[in-house]
Design a binder for these strands. Sequence first.
DNA 1: GGCAAGATTCCCT
DNA 2: GGGAATCTTGCCC
Length: 200
Amino acid sequence: MCNITDKPLDKKFYYQPTLELAKALLGCLLIKETPNGITSGIIVETEAYMGPADRAAHSFNNRRTMRTEIMYGNPGHAYTYSMHTHCLLNVVSGKTDEPEAVLIRGVEPYTGQNLMASRRPKAKNERQWTNGPGKLTKALGITMADYGHPLTESPLWIMEGRKIEATQIVSGPRIGIDNTGEARDYPWRFWLKGNKYVSK
DNA sequence: GGCAAGATTCCCT
DNA sequence: GGGAATCTTGCCC
């Protein structure tokens, strides 16, 4: 399928429209290097957050704070967000001053399974290592320290992975944003049909 | 400084 | 299915 020593995706990859990027990221390989070793997973589930017009987005109505600042810059950077006891990973998209992002909600383990297992002691099976946005960051060792990191460089990057046919991609409403009015129903969540590492 | 809320996960009344 | 866990951010409710 692919070799982990291959090159990261070029910066140009991130300059496509956010909804296109959310679909293009499916099948790509997300890689994280730590002192303990290297882990990677195939992206199987994403959600698009469409900036100022999207009530569910942190950058809704052009809200600009220390936390959302990275989304106003160039695409292709990591937007990590701390949620309760967990950390979530987004890929910044949209050009400068277009604060859009794609949330990574699920990956399929590819390399470093032993390390993932040790980082996810509560998981009862392999599937529970990475079938959720907070789980996959823990399994891969992604933390708030990765905020703003360019996804074209070590130690956290994305490269081409599995080829995905358009017919394998399914879309539907996003998850966990029930109190955001009409934005709740937008079909901006994308996943690979039948993949068991999809969160729901 | 303080407090409320949150794109979640885990465990149990 | 419901509530606790427990950290960061944002705004002063």
